[in-house]
């Protein structure tokens, strides 16, 4: 290959290069071919960073089921009601021990072994979430959780299609309503088991919820990309801030 001829590619060459890059047809021919071949090289190990969360979301979507619309909306209503109850129970449980939680738990579709003992022994929080600056918000939200956690995203969720996973979204809201230092502890409770499973581990919940809530508020898709430019919930989905110290 000649050293430095001026490379004046024409349009046909360009088309050829573009179409062939994915199959690596041009590697080794000239620097531009090498460049495109490198850009389109086969996948590397680190290129599936969110695979577990995505697969969990796929499972949660339950695509094979294709429920008929009316039924789906009934289910959704039911689920959101249950979630409201559940959130209330969790908050009450925080304040007043396990009694309220145990009471409501019998109504809930959560695993039935929901021992009051869990809340009766409030071990000191590991204090893991460092500096998310959320403590102020959650204090407010404990007083009136509906208004602070509810309206921003929950309200818009209602209009979403049946393939949403309302339970995961709801659990994320419930989780985020927790005090920063208590979040890790909360994840041990049966009520959050589904969330932990969906996220693929306790240490992934923070990032998972950030992504879920961001996309829930970003929702219905392509045509309306401006939709979530405004409200911009505080879900800058950064790296996980929770690192369970256990």
């Amino acid at each position: 290959m000649s050293d430095h001829r001026p490379r004046q590619i024409d349009r046909d060459t360009a088309e050829h290069l573009l179409a062939g890059a994915v199959v690596g047809r041009h590697a080794g021919v000239d620097p531009l071919g090498d460049l495109l071949a490198a850009a389109a090289s086969p996948p590397r190990g680190g290129e599936y960073p969110g695979e577990q969360a995505v697969m969990a979301a796929f499972r949660a979507a339950d695509l094979g089921a294709t429920p008929e619309p009316r039924r789906a909306s009934m289910i959704r209503t039911l689920v959101s009601k249950v979630l409201t109850l559940k959130a209330a129970a969790l908050l009450a449980g925080l304040a007043g021990g396990g009694i309220a939680l145990a009471g409501v738990a019998s109504v809930l579709p959560t695993p039935s072994h929901n021992p009051p003992a869990v809340t009766a022994s409030p071990a000191p929080g590991p204090g893991e979430t460092s500096g998310t600056g959320k403590t102020g918000d959650t204090d407010k939200s404990r007083g009136g959780d509906k208004s602070s956690t509810g309206d921003k995203t929950q309200g818009s969720d209602k209009t979403k299609d049946p393939y949403d996973s309302p339970s995961v979204v709801g659990l994320c809201h419930a989780y985020r309503a927790k005090d920063g230092s208590k979040r890790g502890k909360e994840l041990d409770k049966p009520a959050f088991r589904e969330l932990v499973t969906a996220a693929g581990g306790k240490d992934k919940v923070e990032a998972f919820c950030a992504a879920v809530l961001a996309s829930a508020s970003a929702k219905p898709g392509d045509g309306q990309q401006g939709q979530n430019g405004g409200p911009a919930p505080d879900t800058k989905s950064g790296k996980p801030t929770v690192s369970p110290s256990r």
């Binding site: 969110g50 969360a53 995505v54 979507a61 299609d161 996309s215």
Partner: peptide
Amino acid sequence: GEDVASETWLQVVRDLAS
């Protein structure tokens, strides 16, 4: 890009049926 890719897939999963 990783974060945005995750958001993308969550939406893809949600709308895949359609």
